[in-house]
Structures are given as C-alpha cells and as structure tokens.
C-alpha cells in the first residue's frame, strides 16, 4: 500500500530526527562554546534538511511543498548567519576557544558535574 516515495519520505524524516538528536547530544557533550556551534550546525543543516525533504516528498507537487521549500531556503540562509554573528560576538568579547587535544580531563570533569 505504501509506494516507494512514501517509504523514502519515512526514511528521510526518521534519519533527520536521528541527526536532530545527535545535534542535541553534541550540544550537551562538547566542551566549550565554539565546539558547541558545530553541534548546533548538525541540527540546522542535515537534520532540518532531511525532515523538510521528507515532508516535501509526502506532500507531493503542491503549494505546501513550495512553502516547505521556502522554509528550507530561510533556514539555509539564516542559520550560518546567526552562527557567525554569535561566534564573532563571543570572539570579540574575548571568549578564548579551547584548542588542541588536551581537552580530555576537562571533558571528564564536565561529565561528572
């Protein structure tokens, strides 16, 4: 009963949800602000793309699909802009990024806390 396009749309929506969750885990797990931006980027890019693409496949060729495409376009243009604005504001405020591989101890401390 379910055509191949329906199945493809399920796969897109479900794998998009997985990436959204991975982004959420990263947001909690990564050690400092600058690395957390990368985790938020996962949710903003592949997670939302897959979910919106899945909804578009479900919708077919209609006005709703055009609105979803517009939504995709807005997310595509605004998410890097706000990430960049945040990173730049933090950098100019003097928030220093952690660098190198010596993050392990600090990360374990964070895990316990």
């Amino acid at each position: 009963m379910a055509g191949p396009i329906e199945v493809l749309s399920w796969v897109c929506i479900l794998s998009g949800s997985v990436f959204v969750i991975i982004g959420g885990i990263g947001l909690l797990r990564l050690p400092d602000f600058y690395t957390r931006i990368h985790a938020a980027g996962i949710t903003d890019t592949l997670g939302s793309w897959l979910i919106l693409a899945g909804l578009m496949l479900h919708e077919g060729f209609t006005l709703g699909a055009a609105k979803l495409a517009m939504l995709l376009f807005f997310l595509l243009t605004t998410s890097p802009l706000s990430s960049h604005a945040l990173a730049k504001a933090a950098f100019l405020r003097g928030l220093d990024p952690l660098q190198g591989r010596d993050l392990v101890d600090r990360h374990e401390v964070d895990d316990i806390a």
Partner: peptide
C-alpha cells in the same frame, strides 16, 4: 557562509 554552513568549521 559556506564555511559556516559546513558543520565542523565556523568562520569567526
């Protein structure tokens, strides 16, 4: 923007 869009790199 392309750099920022790619997770793993952020232009500051």
């Amino acid at each position: 923007n392309s750099i920022t869009l790619t997770p793993g790199t952020v232009s500051i």
